[in-house]
Amino acid sequence: MKFTLKIWRQKNADDKGRLVSYMVDDISPDSSFLEMLDQLNQQLISRGEEPVAFDHDCREGICGACGLYINGRPHGPLKGTTTCQLHMRAFRNGEMIYIEPWRSGAFPVVRDLIVDRSALDTIIQAGGYISVNSGGVPDANTIPVPKPNADSAFDAAACIGCGACVAACPNASPMLFVGAKISHLALLPQGRIEATRRVQQMVAEMDALGFGFCSNTYACQAECPKEISIANIARMNREFLAAKLAAEKEQTGGFTI
């Protein structure tokens, strides 16, 4: 297969950056999107040009490292698929493909298609710890968990933190990510202990990092490669309101609404 690629090239964080056109030929319909880029990079290297920098790691859709904004959609045209699991057969032969980095003020471009997503880690860190006893391995099922809760917690925990929700959101809001992270702990007894504090700290950190606010367009849910539900955002809102309005004692200190 043959494609015209329009790829965002940017030397470093200070460079202005621009779209550059490349032609690729001899692409197998069964090669993944990243393998297609590998082929392009081989061409560029043999011509003595700088290869295109992009993030990738496991290439089996479970690590959350890859992420490209392809023709106006994070991770490209397929539902529930990461960029590494997207194959070139999903495109028309000869199609023009725009490839851009995630865009958010909180995700500065490092180089070409690589952005710094450590803001998401900062939100996780703000959530703090959970209280579990160290020592020997506990017997299975010593803490009863209702089956529906276990299922919902597992669905939320499927989030790989790739940032596609931020990239897709018209407001660059990470609320699907934060909602998933809050939900997967809030639904389990082990996570309830610090739940009141956790939701307030994570939301405060998300706001402090300059992310936008959710406006319920649900583009995040449509683009999430792990198909995380917006029910998790509603749960985060519930947890937050409960923590602010109905906590036993104030657990963050000071006045924040």
Partner: peptide, 8 residues
């Protein structure tokens, strides 16, 4: 640069 094609 490319218009969003995400379903909303």
């Amino acid at each position: 640069q490319h218009k969003s094609r995400s379903e909303t």
